[in-house]
Design a protein around this nucleic acid. Structure first.
Lengths: 334, 334
DNA sequence: TAATGTCATCGAAGCGCTTCGACGCAACAG
DNA sequence: CTGTTGCGTCGAAGCGCTTCGATGACATTA
């Protein structure tokens, strides 16, 4: 292994000069810096991460805790992760991946000084990780919105506003009976707040506009989706529009509607709440509220970075939803 | 931060005694060990990862390079990752996540001594990462099979055998015209070997058994899947069985078959090659060759671990496929 | 000419841990 | 009673880096 000593010797300078030349934390004359850089290149020198972390109190790694279960929406998670990893590189950071259930992991990586900051996905209302996070010296960023975010940064799509946006779009088209096909029971029971916030926004907005609004949970399986559609028609026979907030179920819901003889958007309009690629990848392109998963991931990193060197206080950011009209919504049938 | 010195002081022993008490690398008397452990508990001591890495040449972290693109099969990747992360914990290791395109990452984390070993997913025949990997001091495990694995451990499902298994199952049921609906063009062009191995196994086995075998690539989109089905009927009008090795397309292929008036398995049999949960989660449970993604991930970790402390030489392991008969295959129509 | 200031560089301490060699002590053999 | 062995513990070196204070060279000013 080539060390900073080797570089110093090769460049004919002291170790500290090499360090300063590379970090730029003190002025080094151009010729000296050139010699150092040359030596670095020729020897293929890489600073030892552990030694650096020990001396500088910085690891250049951040922890990402992601739900690797199968029941949640794999595609969205992947995009979050991609956003985080990609943006982290812009800040010269790598990403240590923890699983959601690894509660001890928070302590292990934070107290063990393995990371500079932590990002947690899929936060629940009373998430058991929050107390752990609060007592670490590293800043934490939550993707999601717990009941009490005290001391922790949060970022998420504004799901209440998303629901409103979807309802308004449909209401403006004349729809008066709208159903929300949402997350599985389990997700709601876990008190994952995005699901709750969606339902809440939907309920209040339909109420506000004097519209019949029905919420049905929907399991993420073929059967679950078919069942959800059936329940909608059962409980709201004259429904003319659906808001679907469940990616896995989405294609099945569409197929089932067609099977039941409903043409989209002639007989029934559909607004999806999902990432853009899912919305346009269906049999027909769907009007949708975009879940900008990658953006959220990268914003999370930005927020972590801000707290690392700016030591700003924690803040909460809710991203404004954007609805894109495509082929799946139209005026309510007469 | 509480350090090993604090623990030593609290326990009334020397620093080295604490270290040995915790690592077990030298005998420490029971009472002393108890005092150390008590101090550790009371102070909430966690060794500093960087310091430990510096002194011991072990980081207890392994790198996992995963394709976070969207075009590949997200679900399978997630399962690999889960397998790796979960198994890594059994060996007291954490996982650093790199993206596939981050070629420089190999050097950064390996030469920078951030990890003890590397695991690379989605390896191509002439993968550009291989030379980089070979010159690192850390062992590497590939998920996939490059043309020349020299010096690197490999693990994957035996896709040639999988194809054979699928073909044999169908041939034994009397099918004489079989099509393989496979990976997208791009994946093949990238020379991702699982796709090639699948095609090769399919081609040789159909030939060996004197069966008409047709391979059609299939893009991972609704339109792509529909198109693939059309091409199959175009080029092999009397086809009675399909092998589908493309998870994303799978549901669309099934739907399209039905739309074309083909009932499964009465008119046409289908063998999927996909993870079990995908096979059973379709509208009807599918006969399938399981892709044991999680197992492969955990085997990869096992292989890495073996090379870490046993310093066994590199080896290649191809997992034997298992075909499970479900509702989508039956005798060839007369 | 001496005092002052600037700039580039150096030396050394120290980050927190592991590990090697040494040491004291008790048990045992000769 | 001395010599040997083995167990449990300690001290110190060293892992590779960052950073602080000091220093020397040189230019600037009084």
């Amino acid at each position: 292994m080539t060390t900073i000593d080797d570089v110093a010797r090769a460049a004919g300078v002291s170790v500290s000069t090499v360090s300063y030349a590379l970090s730029g934390k003190r002025p080094i004359s151009a010729p000296t810096r050139a010699r150092v850089e040359r030596a670095v290149r020729e020897l293929g020198y890489r600073p030892h991460a552990g030694a650096r972390a020990l001396a500088s109190q910085r690891t250049n790694v951040l922890a990402l805790m992601a739900p690797l279960r199968v029941d949640v929406n794999v595609g969205v998670i992947m995009q979050f992760v991609t956003g985080v990893v990609t943006r982290a590189r812009d800040f010269e950071h790598d990403v240590l991946l923890l699983t959601q259930d690894d509660l001890a992991g928070v302590d292990r990586v934070a107290a063990g000084s393995m990371v500079d900051a932590l990002i947690m996905m899929d936060v629940e209302a009373e998430d058991p990780r929050l107390p752990l996070l609060r007592r670490q010296k590293q800043p934490a960023v939550l993707i999601g919105l717990p009941r009490d975010p005290q001391g922790l940064s949060c970022v998420d799509l504004d799901f209440e506003a998303s629901a409103r946006l979807a309802v308004d779009h449909l209401a403006d088209l004349g729809h008066r009976q709208i159903a929300l096909v949402g997350s599985p029971h389990l997700v709601l029971e876990r008190r994952t707040t995005y699901a709750q916030r969606m339902v809440h926004g939907f309920t209040t907005e339909t109420a506000r506009r004097g519209i019949a609004g029905l919420f049905v949970p929907c399991e993420s399986s073929h059967a679950g989706a078919v069942d959800a559609v059936d329940r909608v028609f059962d409980q709201l026979p004259d429904v003319t529009a659906l808001v679907v907030h469940n990616e896995v179920a989405l294609p099945v819901v569409l197929a089932t509607l067609r099977e039941r003889g409903k043409e989209i958007p002639r007989d029934i309009s559909v607004v999806a709440v999902c990432p853009e690629d899912v919305a346009v990848g269906q049999q027909q392109p769907l009007t949708a509220v975009d879940i900008p998963a990658m953006t959220i991931g990268s914003v999370a990193v930005d927020m972590a970075a801000a707290r690392l060197d700016g030591d700003q206080p924690a803040e909460t950011r809710l991203l404004s939803p954007v609805l894109t009209v495509r082929a799946s919504t139209g005026p309510a049938p007469a």
